[in-house]
Amino acid sequence: MTATTQATVARGTPPTTPIRKRGIASRTPRAFYWMVLPAFVLFFLLHTVPVLQGVFYSFTDSPGYGPYEFVGFANYQALFTDPRVIHAYLFTFQFAIVATVLVNVIALAVAVALNSRIKFRTTLRAVYFIPYVLAVLVVGYVFQYLFSISIPAMAQALGNERFSTSILSDESLAWIAIVVLAVWQAAAFNIVLYLAGLQTVPHELYEAASLDGAGAWRQFRSITFPMIWGFFVINMVLALKGFLQVFDHIVAMTGGGPGTATESVGLLIYKGGFQGGEFGYQLANAVVFMIVIIVFALVQFRVLQREDTSA
Rank of each mutant, 00 (worst) to 15 (best):
M154Q: 15
Y68Q: 02
Q219G: 12
I118K: 02
A7R: 11
I178L: 11
A286M: 12
R125S: 06
V105I: 14
M290C: 15
E263D: 08
L304V: 05
A88I: 10
L46Q: 01
L268Y: 07
H203D: 02
Q156V: 02
V133N: 02
V133W: 03
Q77E: 13
I291Q: 10
T13M: 01
I178A: 07
I118C: 08
V105R: 05
R125W: 10
N190K: 11
I151A: 09
L79E: 09
W229L: 10
Y145Q: 12
L244N: 08
T262Q: 08
F32L: 15
Q185R: 06
Q219E: 10
I234W: 14
T262Y: 12
L114H: 04
A111D: 02
P15M: 07
Q94E: 15
S172M: 09
M35V: 05
L52P: 08
T262G: 15
L114W: 06
Y194G: 00
A74C: 12
W175D: 09
G256L: 04
M253T: 09
E204A: 12
I86E: 14
Y132D: 13
Y281Q: 07
W217L: 05
T200I: 01
V51F: 13
V36E: 06
A297M: 10
F40G: 11
A239R: 00
K119P: 10
G12Y: 03
E161W: 07
R306V: 13
S310T: 15
K241Q: 03
V133C: 06
I151R: 05
G215R: 03
A196M: 01
P29N: 08
T28P: 00
G242H: 00
T254A: 02
D308R: 14
A155P: 10
W184K: 14
A216G: 06
A297K: 10
K241A: 04
S26N: 02
A78M: 11
N235V: 14
V179C: 15
S264H: 10
V303S: 02
T48L: 14
I24P: 04
I149N: 04
G257H: 02
Q6T: 12
L45D: 05
I19S: 00
G215K: 06
A284M: 11
M227R: 15
M236R: 11
T260L: 14
V85K: 00
Y33M: 09
R125P: 11
L195I: 05
A126D: 03
L283N: 11
R218K: 09
V139C: 09
F220A: 06
A155D: 13
N104M: 01
W175N: 07
P258K: 07
L304S: 03
T123L: 08
V142S: 05
Y132F: 15
L205D: 00
M1F: 12
V192G: 06
N75R: 06
F163G: 08
R121I: 00
L283Y: 02
Y132I: 10
